[in-house]
Every structure is written in C-alpha cells, then in structure tokens.
Design a protein around this nucleic acid. Structure first.
Length: 678
RNA sequence: GCUGGCAUAGCUCAGCGGUAGAGCGCCACCUUGGUAAGGUGGAGGUCCUGGGUUCAAGCCCCAGUGCCAGCUCCA
C-alpha cells in the first residue's frame, strides 16, 4: 500500500502503483476532470505517475492552479513543434521550448529551403488546433541517454544530443522522452493528459535567437505564443498587450510632444522638445530641493576630458567598447599625418598612451573626483557631496537602442559622496531615503530593490574583507531601514564595492534599472584621494556613487508609461487648457489665460471656432489636467467653469479661488487633491 | 553587433510593374455653439538613400541607413 497525505491534511492508503490520475478519480469526478498534473512531495508529475510506498504529500493540480497553466503552456510548445513538423517536414529541428512569463516559445531551425515568416503563424495555429482536436494523449518513457539519442536521431533531431550529453555528464542515468501522436521530444515533463486540454492558444511573434544563447552558434527562429484555459482570458491578455502598446513611451512621447529622435542627429540621441523639457526641468527642480536639504553641493563639469583621466579611473581602455572613440588632439593629428601614420597605428599608440586625446565622458565621477582633489580636505568638512545633472555618452550597440530607455547620450542625476569609513552607513541611508521619496511622490510603487554583494568565492574584488563586510552590512541595513522588499544577490556587486539598485518594470514587462547607489573603494585609491583626519594623518575617503533617477531619459520614458502620458499637475507640460465656448468669449478667455499665466501656471488657450465638445476632447486627449470652460455665463458671473481631465465637470468658481487651489495642489506635488467637487 | 520583419502625406496606414490614395491632423470658409468629434473646401509626397533589372519601378533585385521584435551586451 502507498500512503499519501492530501493538502487538507487527510491521510489515505491506496494500493501501490495507483496513479495520480486514479487517485484524483477516487477523490471526486470533477477533480479528476479538472486534473492537469499532480504534485508529489513538491514535484510536479504526470497524472499517470504511479504512487508507491510513502508517505507522500500529494496535491492534484487543476486548471485553476498557476502550475496547471505552466504545464499547459509547456505542452503547447510541444504541440507547436509538432505542427511545424507536419507543415514543414521532418527537417524541422526543434531545440528548446520553455515556458516563460505569460506564455511559451520554441526555438526552431527550419530547413534551409523554408523561409518562415510571421504571415504563416495563422497557418501553424490552425495545424495546432487540429492536433488539439485530435486529443492526443501525452506519454512518457524513461530511457538511458544513449537510447534517447537513438530515438531522437530517428526523428532527425541533432540539437538534442548536446542536451542529453550534458544531462549524462551531470550523472543522469536515464532521461525522459515524451510523445504525443507522431511527435517525440526529450523533455523533463510533466505534461497535460492529452492535447485536447489546450483550450485557447495564440502564436504571437517570431524573433531570432542563438542556439544556447551563443552568438557564435546556430541562429534559430524563436516562435512566441501564449495560451490560457479559456478564450476569455486569452482575449483579455491580448487586450492588455494592446493597452500596453498605447502606453509605450515611444508612441506617447512623440505624440505628446515630449521628445523626438531624429536620424539626422543620430541614433540613440534624444532631442527634448519644449514639453518634454518642462517635465525634465520640474523633476530636476524637485530633486534639487532635496539635494539642498541633504547638504549636497551642485557642480558643473565639461563633456570631454583628457584620455589620461579615464586611464587613471580605469574606464579607458577597459570599457573602450562602450565608449565613443577618443577625439585626438589637432596638432598631433597633423603631425602624425605628416609622418604617414595610419588609423591602425593611431589606435595602437592611443592604447599605449603615446597619443594625447580627449574622451567624450562615459561617467561623471572622474571629474567630481578632481573637484574633490582640488582642495586640501579635512575630516571636518566630510562628507563632501557633489551633485550634477551630468550628461554622459556611451556607445551602445545599435541593436540595443530604443526610445528613451536605451540611448547613447543621457543625463544622470549624478552625485558622488566622499566620506569617511564611519560615515558610509549614514550616507547610504540618506541616498535610499531620497530614492524612496522620489518614487513615493510619483506613485511608483512597483519596483524591486537588489542589494548586490560580492561573490565570496571570487578574488576579483578590490578592498579588504573588513571594508567589504562593513559596506555590505551598511547596504543591507539601509535597505532594511528603508522598509522595502529587497533581494540580496551575491556576486552582483561591482568589482569596486557593493551596490543597491532600484529596478522598475515597464508596461511591456521589461525591467529597467533606474536608481542606483554604489559604494566604491577603488576610485579613491586610483586617484590617491586623501583627507586629513583628527589625528593629523592622511586618510583615504570612501566614495558613494548614486543616481536616484538613473538617467533623466530612461526615467521619463518609464514615467511616461507609468502615467500613460497623463502627468500630475506639477509635471504636466500644460497644466490648464482655457477653452472658449464661442468666439464671443475669446476676449474673456484670453484675459483669464493671462491671469493664470501671471500666477505662474502653464496655460494653453483654444480659441478656435471648434465647438466646446471638440475642444474638450482635444484637451483630454492631450492629457491636460484641468480645463477652464468660458462662455457668456461665466463672463457675466465673473467666474470660471472648471473641468478635470478624468473627473469631469467641477462646476464654477472665482478665478482667484481656482488659482489658489491649483497652487495648493502644486505645493504638495499632488499628494493632496486640490480641486475637490464643488 | 547578430537574425528576422518593416520603411508611402505631420500621424496611423491602404496600394495594382503603367497618372500616388484614405482617415486623423493642418489651413481657409460657413456655422457662434454649453462639457469627449458641426459642415464644406484646400494645401501637403525625393513613395528612406544609392545602385541595378525593365519600354516603364513606390512595387522586382543588390547594397546602405533607420525603426520594430528578439538574441547578446549593459561601468
């Protein structure tokens, strides 16, 4: 007899060899019908998995469990590969087909004569549907690795060899083969009882992918799909994808006049248009207030600096690939040209440090360090906190660029804190507090925090172990004090010190690193920085790099999506739209707009001959927070009729009162709604 | 950088190897209106760039550039 314990705590005795499916049947008919797979002692197994001995903890996974969806999607990947073989012949090579967030994919190598395109996805879907309707049962066979290879060779598959060899090397005595109908695949499983359990499947797009993620190896076609247990959920998911597309900052940004990226200017170089500049300026003002409060000092530094500076910092040539090539000193170029020096030779000499040149700065820190080093420093003035909205340039590979989130020139809300060893902990806390204020004010609560620590088994880190221990503890403590969920990730530290990253997810599900706080022992040493201690001896300061927004470009890109372009009043490029009912009221409207502008508000008037409905629609689509509707009625009463973008008609009030309320809302940065009903 | 797809009016997109299209936007005129689209007319094109095939190329071929998806990378 086998002993099993069910999730409700009940204990059952069943004959040895009873399958999970049979167990489900014994519990209830409906459960058996809904059953997808079983979970035995925490491991997912097929319904035909036999239970023996025990005691085992057994749970029946149904289509209502997340694991059920996972298994179904995995089975979908198999059906996809099967359909492709039906349509494009046995020359179709299938490699790996895992489940991912919100779906699955399969990496395929098509025979050379097949030019597979996205247009054919519906055809493939139809074939998958046919396979689903046949309701083919999935079966499993456990075989020795060599036997598995033979089986798959019979299916014409060669990629699987490599996976099987690896499993064998890991000591696996047997591997599992799954089959449904005429399809055979190496797979860990488990799978659905049969293909008929797939209810709603949709192939989404294709993309290139490398075999084993290695650019040197075969290029495969990755086919993405998703599936759900009912049509409604699939439709809802597809609708959400559409919705997400509408929030995409690459669409919204240009439409709302925030920024443009112009091929004539260059790839990955952002042109901030007037409305985008307003948003950026407001954010910078906001953060500057907090910088002053926290005792930062603002500095400005140039866009280029001598190559030698970046050799000292270690940025050149170590990160050469991700920098724009150096600018070479004019006189030297002339002289070298006269000598007949070629490009290869020039690069060579530059590397060796024989050629003077300038680098478009990839980071601000070396220049801030030189500011710190420009004076003799006493422990009494520490910490020194130097802040700059500093623009840096990085040579991102062309395929990496996109929108505002991955660009070649960007402005960091950067700062470098030079402090004593004892001050590190407090300074980190101050940095995190700032990030927390920023994100809270903007209502961005969907972020995660990563504390990157050193890998204890690696020797690549600089600084002594004591320092590291203290700094890592300071980072962890600060994250704890901050009161946010954070993960500790050993091996994720920079080589020069531990770090804390804030990662935000955008509407398409991509994650972006925004704010970052990093402790650095390396640069103070490379630049031989020192301050005089109370003991009248020189001491090495510790540096902290921090950027709460990360970069203005990326931050505003993500922020645009976060608000779907509808910025809160304090950030809105246009805060109030003044709309005249008819041209008879244009004069009153203009006068009102002037008063609003005089009060410091950003105002746009619409005095066109459009009807009021159309004007309201336009202003609403432009995401302007407040509308002032002005007709003869308002003029006679000496009032303004207020409409809020999302809340609709707010009734009339005196202009002075409206201004007063807006100013209140601005003062609190929208933390308290200003124009309430009435 | 690699693979695939795409590139036509300011925007979103149709388009057949044979005279370049629609909707929105823009401009003008009519209308002077009351809380998400009033009507009419008009302007606007290097069909991404450079080559090639063809009597004829926006369409077919080659190369380049850019964008999108993904891979790889991301101090």
């Amino acid at each position: 007899m086998a002993q099993i314990k069910l999730p409700d705590g009940s204990i059952k005795e069943i004959p040895d060899g009873t399958t999970v499916g049979q167990l489900a049947e014994g519990i209830g008919k409906r459960l058996a019908q809904a059953a997808i797979v079983g979970k035995v002692n925490g491991k997912l197994v097929d319904l035909f998995y036999p239970l023996t001995g025990g005691p085992h903890e057994v749970q029946i996974i149904t289509d209502r469990d997340p694991e059920g969806l996972f298994v179904m999607r995995h089975s979908c990947a198999h059906v996809l590969a099967q359909a492709l073989r039906h349509l494009y012949g046995t020359g179709v090579q299938y490699t790996i087909g895992p489940v991912i967030d919100n779906g699955f994919y399969y990496d395929i190598e098509f025979p050379k004569e097949v030019g597979f395109s996205a247009d054919e996805l519906p055809k493939v879907e139809k074939e998958m549907q046919r396979i689903v309707e046949q309701d083919l049962p999935f079966s499993r066979e456990d075989v020795a690795p060599d036997r598995a290879k033979d089986l798959l060779h019979k299916e014409n598959q060669r990629f699987k060899d490599e996976i099987i060899d690896e499993l064998a090397k890991q000591g696996e005595q047997s591997v599992s083969i799954y089959r449904q109908g005429d399809f055979t695949d190496l797979c860990r499983g488990p799978h659905l009882p049969s293909t008929g359990r797939i209810k709603a499947v949709k192939l989404l797009n294709l993309a290139g992918a490398y075999w084993r993620g290695d650019a040197a190896r075969e290029q495969l076609t990755r086919i993405y799909g998703t599936s759900f247990f009912d049509r409604k959920q699939l439709d809802e998911h597809l609708r959400m994808l559409e919705e997400a597309k509408k929030r995409d900052h690459r669409v919204l940004g240009p439409r709302l006049g925030l920024f443009t990226i112009d091929d004539a200017v260059g790839q990955g170089l952002v042109l901030w248009k007037p409305k985008g500049a307003v948003v950026r300026q407001e954010l910078q003002n906001f953060i500057s207030e907090h910088l002053r409060r926290q005792g930062y000092q603002q500095v400005f530094t140039p866009h280029i600096g001598r190559l030698g500076l970046y050799k000292t910092s270690g940025h050149y040539p170590y990160y050469r690939e991700s920098q724009f090539p150096p600018l070479v000193d004019r006189e030297l170029v002339d002289q070298l040209a006269a000598e007949g020096c070629g490009c290869a030779e020039l690069a060579n000499r530059m590397e060796k440090g024989e050629v003077e040149g300038y680098l478009l700065k990839p980071m601000n820190c070396p220049m801030h360090i030189r500011i710190f080093a420009s004076e003799q420093r006493s422990y009494r003035e520490m910490p020194v906190r130097l802040a700059e909205f500093g623009t840096v340039y990085r040579w991102e590979k062309s395929g990496e660029l996109g929108g505002m989130t991955r660009v070649r020139g960007f402005t960091q809300d950067d700062a470098h804190l030079f402090c004593t060893e004892e001050q590190v902990s407090g300074e980190i806390q101050g940095c995190l507090e700032l990030v927390k204020i920023v994100l809270a004010t903007l209502g961005m609560n969907q972020y995660r925090v990563r504390v990157g620590l050193r890998d204890p088994d690696s020797a690549k880190y600089v600084g002594d172990a004591d320092q590291w221990d203290r700094a890592e503890k300071a980072c962890k403590d600060a994250a704890q004090t901050l009161g946010v969920n954070f993960t500790v990730e050993p091996g994720e530290a920079a080589f020069y010190g531990p770090k804390i990253d804030f990662v935000v997810r955008d509407v398409i599900g991509r994650e972006w690193q925004l704010g970052t706080v990093q402790v650095d022992y390396q640069l103070p040493r490379r630049f031989d920085l020192a301050y005089t201690g109370a003991d009248n001896k020189p001491h090495r300061p510790v540096m902290i790099h921090r950027a709460p927004f990360g970069s203005m470009e990326r931050f505003i890109g993500v922020l645009t999506e976060h608000f779907a372009g509808a910025f809160p009043l304090w950030l809105a490029p246009v805060q109030v739209a003044v709309l005249s009912i008819s041209e008879k009221s244009n004069a009153y409207a203009e006068q009102t707009a002037d008063s609003l502008k005089a009060a410091g508000l950003r105002v746009e008037s619409n005095l066109s001959p459009d009807k009021i409905g159309a004007k309201i629609r336009t202003a609403t689509l432009d995401k302007i927070p407040y509308m002032v509707v002005l007709g003869e009625k308002e003029q006679q009463a000496g009032q303004v009729a207020i409409r809020h973008r999302t809340e609709g008609d707010k009734g009339s009030m005196a202009l002075a009162e409206f201004i007063e309320r807006l100013q209140q809302e601005l003062a609190t940065r929208g933390q308290a709604p200003a124009v309430a009903n009435g």
